[in-house]
Computed example of a mutant assay.
Amino acid sequence: MRSPLSSLHTQLEVAVRHPGSADRATRGPALVEESERLSRLVDDLVRLARLDAPPRLCMRPVDLDEIVFREVRHARRHASVVFDQGAVSAARVYGDGDALARVVRNLLDNAIRYADRRIEVSLGVRDRAAHLVVADDGPGIPVADRRRVFDRFTRLDGARARGTGGSGLGLAIVRDLVVVHHGRIGIEDNAPGARIVVRIPATDH
């Protein structure tokens, strides 16, 4: 939390000490961006704290496809990349709706951060499991880093970390929530880019 807090404090301090010279039109959006970044970080930390405690999830049959459509619709309003959700089909799982929405949201946020022009989202049921895939056309993730990106506070060096401003918590939260739902998560090549694949047991009820 030190980085966004320090940046926010510095900008506010300059504005207070030099009110006549402060360019509000420039500083205003920057302050909003930093405060939003801090808010996301606090939200992530709260989520992790809850996951570390005994889980209190409301488990019930959930239509995962409805969650995916809703989260993609929301993501479209805040991103300039193209979303392709043509391969999303019905998939019902037994889980917590809010937690699964967080999984989809974090995967989309991660893809938006690195995508060049396009994000593809697919969902279907195979071998009694719902397969959710979020793929971007960005720089991809080296094979050697594909396990550790799910560790808390991990931020990659190089192209995959350019200008992200991420906390290194998003994918860790996804991994923990998927595990709570008795699922698995992995990363594959997308040529170019990365494909993050989530598998959660499906239910017919």
Rank of each mutant, 00 (worst) to 15 (best):
S3L: 15
L5F: 08
S6M: 10
L8F: 07
T10I: 10
L12S: 10
V16P: 02
G20W: 00
S21H: 07
S21W: 05
A22C: 08
A25F: 00
R27N: 02
A30C: 04
E34Y: 05
R37E: 14
S39T: 11
R40N: 09
R40A: 06
L41E: 14
L41S: 09
V42F: 13
D43F: 04
L51H: 07
D52F: 14
A53D: 15
A53V: 11
P54V: 09
P54C: 02
P54G: 05
C58P: 12
R60S: 14
P61R: 06
D63F: 08
E66I: 06
E66V: 09
E71A: 08
E71V: 06
H78R: 11
A79Y: 05
V81K: 00
V81N: 01
V82N: 02
D84L: 05
Q85W: 14
A87F: 12
S89L: 00
R92M: 11
R92F: 03
V93W: 06
V93C: 12
Y94E: 15
G95A: 14
D98F: 09
A99Q: 06
A99D: 09
L100R: 01
A101Y: 03
R102H: 13
V103T: 01
V103H: 03
L107M: 11
N110I: 08
N110W: 07
A111M: 02
I112L: 09
R113E: 13
Y114E: 04
A115P: 00
R117T: 08
R118G: 00
R118T: 00
V121I: 08
S122K: 01
L123N: 11
L123A: 06
V125M: 07
V125T: 12
V125F: 05
D127Y: 03
A129D: 14
A130F: 04
V133E: 09
V134N: 11
D136S: 04
D137C: 00
D137T: 00
P139S: 11
V143H: 09
V143Q: 08
R147A: 02
R148L: 14
V149N: 02
F150G: 00
R152D: 15
D157F: 07
G158F: 15
G158N: 14
R160D: 15
R160W: 08
A161Q: 05
R162D: 09
R162I: 10
G163C: 07
G163L: 06
G165E: 05
G166T: 15
G166W: 07
G170A: 10
L171K: 06
A172T: 15
V174M: 03
R175F: 12
V178H: 10
V179S: 13
G183L: 01
I185C: 05
N190W: 09
A191W: 15
I196Y: 02
V197H: 12
P201Y: 04
